[in-house]
Amino acid sequence: MVKQMGDIQAENVEIEKKMREVARSLLIEKEVDVIIGYARGTVPLSSSPIFIKNVEDIDSLIWDNLCYVNLARYVVPPLTEFVDNEKVELKVGIVSKGCVARALIHLAKEKQVDPEKIKIIGIPCNGVVNRRRIEKELGEKEVLEISVSNDQVIVKGKDFEEVLPYQDYLNELCKTCKVKSPPMSSSLSDVIVGESIEISSVEDDFSDLSEYESKTPEEKWEVITELLSDCTRCYACREACPMCYCNLCFVDQNKPIWFGKTSEMSDIIVFHLVRAMHMAGRCVGCGACSSVCPMGIDLKLINRKLEKIVKERFDFTAGLSLDVMPPMMTQKMEDSEDFMLGEH
């Protein structure tokens, strides 16, 4: 579970200050051309990505419990600029909590990101607040302001103020997250600046899944269809995911048409099933998909299962190091065949 909290707000202010310092010096030293970070969103309960090239703008960088976007999303394809009619790749500094760094590391393994061209500005994360759950809780009431102090989320609106327990409104995936800062290893020492932790493998018992997994197929189907029944197939979850960078996504393919384009249950479930397949060994558990879902669907059940499969089968956790080959990019003669039909 999450560590005993001090004053989260105060911690975040500290983190924000340090992050701005690091970002400022990277820009001044010309180590990077652009900083990607978080800025205040235009509506309450949101944050937005920001691209900063001028040192004067550094103070627009923020860090709080609503920085749910995974910024690794913005470096695939690489950022470029025309200089003297020539396209050059920019060097980018990216504000990275643990999951952003993990996404970048994994993308580097997939050769989508060049580690020479990025600087990971590491920050320790306290977890992000699940804004969809807050919205649900408040119903019609419009939130104008939100703050976190000690272990409470305080939301204010026109004629109301509510205090919610922080733990209950934390993103589900943040509750089980073990990599709150960028994972450091020797091959990354030039890439990561700022906060980091030494971690080579993640211990996890996945006990949060055991109740669901003990269900019968019928019960599972019921839970899953219920969970996804509101999905409108807007694909916001795909758009927010740092790992979804295919030029042509299977849902947009029309030759062959693998499955229907409707939001009928069967089509919805196939969309999520295949999305999950494509995420195995790649999902970094940032929860960005759930945070952006306009229907408030929490995909953590599926994301946790993906983590579990690759951990148990291949002892792999996505995005921890540049030195480990992701399981779906390789194979071994002695891989388990426990799922196959034997002769007896």
């Binding site: 019960e219 189907w221 899953i224 299962k305 291949f314 194979q331 799922f339 196959m340 039909l341």
Partner: peptide, 29 residues
């Protein structure tokens, strides 16, 4: 077949996970 085996393991687990009966889909050599 070795590459496929990893893929199939994941397909199988995910199908089970969403509630498709495990006995519907089989892999063998």
């Amino acid at each position: 077949n070795l590459v496929a085996r990893r893929r199939f393991a994941i397909v199988k687990e995910l199908l089970d996970f969403i509630g498709i009966e495990p006995d519907r889909v089989h892999f063998m050599w």
